[in-house]
Amino acid sequence: MNQFVDITNRKVLYRLLLNLDAQAKPLWGKMTPQQMIEHLITQVQYTNGVRIPTWDGPHENTATRKQNGIYTNNEMPRNIILEELPEALTYPDLETAINQLMKELDTFDRHFNTLNLKVIHGGFGPLDYNEWIIWHGKHFTHHLKQFGVID
């Protein structure tokens, strides 16, 4: 799955994120670059112990969704909307938001390294650290492509 961003290579990830132009228009969707970064912050917080995820499972096709979402080279579809955009930004600027995202990723690593656990994904059910690495990589790739940071 080398076509996806490796979120464990934080130096490369940070450089990619810093390539975002705060004024960039998305190739699809309605988010601004800062809204996208703040969205990623929230999503990582659901996996690092800051926010508590929910799952209404088990669902009969959860295993299939997990298999297709995690264990294939399938990319996330464009224009998928799973939540509304917040009305206001949380951070004063894009750079501050990017730095917060990097901190949340460090917390994610510590959360899993201290507790051998699985954390709920709303569509896939419980995921372990390695599965979250894959999923976050796909998610980050999706949004970096959205703003033309990567092809």
Rank of each mutant, 00 (worst) to 15 (best):
M1H: 12
M1F: 14
N2H: 10
Q3H: 08
F4C: 04
D6M: 06
T8C: 01
N9Y: 01
K11E: 15
L16M: 10
L18E: 10
L18D: 06
L20K: 02
D21W: 03
A22L: 08
A22I: 14
A22Q: 15
A24E: 12
K25M: 07
L27T: 10
G29K: 06
G29H: 03
K30R: 13
K30Q: 11
M31N: 02
P33K: 00
I37S: 06
I37R: 01
E38C: 05
L40Q: 09
Q43V: 08
Q45E: 13
T47H: 03
N48H: 09
R51Y: 09
P53R: 03
T54D: 11
W55M: 04
W55Y: 14
W55N: 00
H59K: 13
E60I: 15
N61S: 11
A63Q: 14
K66S: 01
N68A: 14
G69I: 02
I70A: 08
I70M: 04
I70C: 00
T72R: 04
N74C: 06
E75H: 09
E75M: 07
I81G: 03
L82D: 11
E83T: 14
P86E: 13
E87F: 08
T90A: 10
D93P: 11
L94N: 12
L101T: 12
L105W: 12
L105N: 04
L105A: 07
L105D: 04
R110V: 14
F112L: 10
T114E: 15
T114M: 13
L117M: 10
I120M: 11
H121K: 02
G122N: 11
G123I: 03
F124N: 05
N130D: 15
H136I: 08
G137S: 06
K138F: 02
H139A: 01
H142K: 04
H143F: 03
L144E: 01
F147C: 07
D151R: 11
